[in-house]
Amino acid sequence: MTTPFRHRDTGPIRPVADADIDVPEDLTVGQVAALVGVSVRTLHHWDEIGLVRPSGRTPADYRVYSGGDVARIHRVLVYRELGIHLAEVARLLDDPEVDEVAHLRRQRELLTDRISHLHEMVSAVDRMLEAKQMGRPLTPQEQSEIFGTEWRPDWAEEAERRWGDTPQWTQFQQRTAAMSRKERQQARADGETLNADLAAAKRLGVRAGSAEADVLAERHRAMISQAYDCTYSMQVCLARMYVEDARFTAFYEEIEPGLAAWLRQVIEANARSHGVDPDTATWQ
């Protein structure tokens, strides 16, 4: 027996193979509507346009549907489910020159191709969901939403080369991948605000080790910790990179001349106050 399918508007539709069997004669429009899963209004419309007209009448002169009429309705539903306009459906059903069986076979082939394509799309979505949950790498656009338009993709490559085998890198991938676009944009805004505050403090002559400088160092570490758990020792390693890697130095120099070196001093002084020796600090 053919498997039933559901029409987008009308609910379950019985298969065409069942249309010519066990269908009582002289069904009212309401009975047919309940039987095939369409509205009474739809059946009235099909009657008005001549697509499916009830062929019988009761003694009281009410129009009723025969088994053959119901079979025609099922064929209409199949064609409509395939996306064929009602005018074309009427031509297919009424033109004796049309090979309806051959046409249905062709439509079945098209449906099979569509189902195969949809299965491929489902698989692609599944892969995207898995990547999102597992923490796949950020796209360049997503990176810029977090780190700003000045962010360069090779910085992420450098970070992966240095720390790709660490738990922190895994955290970074997972946490940033799970961020919504709004959260990424907020992280970028927070970073820009912090950089502006760092530059302002440097211009004002805030000294490393002061209470104000320590607050800024803690804000910097908290910002990094949104992506992965950043210890004081790790923060010192980052600050060291800001000075030793020309690409990072240029980034901070553009914000404020001398900012990279000043930020390193601030971070190292704060780490020292928490028992970390900047000279021997490692990624741990």
Rank of each mutant, 00 (worst) to 15 (best):
M1Y: 07
R6L: 07
R6V: 12
H7C: 06
P12F: 05
P12D: 08
A17M: 09
A19V: 00
A19F: 00
D20Q: 06
D20I: 01
E25I: 02
L27P: 01
G30A: 02
G30Y: 06
A33M: 12
A33G: 06
L35F: 00
G37V: 09
V38Q: 09
V40W: 03
L43Y: 07
H44L: 01
E48W: 04
I49C: 01
I49T: 06
G50M: 02
L51A: 09
T58E: 00
T58K: 13
D61G: 05
Y65W: 04
G67W: 06
D69Q: 03
L77Y: 07
Y79C: 10
Y79P: 06
R80H: 08
R80Q: 15
G83K: 15
H85F: 00
E88K: 14
V89F: 08
V89H: 05
V89Y: 04
A90N: 02
A90Q: 15
R91S: 07
D95M: 05
E97W: 15
V98D: 09
R106Y: 04
E109D: 06
L111R: 15
L111Y: 03
T112A: 15
T112D: 12
I115W: 13
S116Q: 13
H117S: 12
V122W: 09
S123I: 08
S123L: 08
S123Y: 08
A124D: 15
D126I: 04
L129C: 02
E130R: 15
Q133N: 05
T139V: 03
Q143I: 13
P153D: 11
R161G: 12
G164K: 11
Q171K: 00
Q171D: 04
Q171G: 01
F172M: 12
T176L: 06
T176V: 08
E183P: 13
R184C: 00
G191H: 10
A200N: 11
R203M: 01
V206E: 11
A208F: 05
G209S: 09
V215L: 12
V215R: 15
L216W: 00
H220I: 12
M223S: 14
C230M: 07
Y232N: 13
Y232W: 15
M234A: 01
V236F: 00
V236W: 11
L238E: 14
R240I: 04
R240C: 05
M241G: 07
Y242R: 14
Y242P: 14
A250W: 09
G258V: 05
G258L: 06
A260L: 03
L263G: 11
Q265K: 13
V266F: 02
E268N: 04
A269V: 07
N270Y: 08
A271Q: 10
A271R: 12
P278N: 09
T282N: 08
Q284C: 07
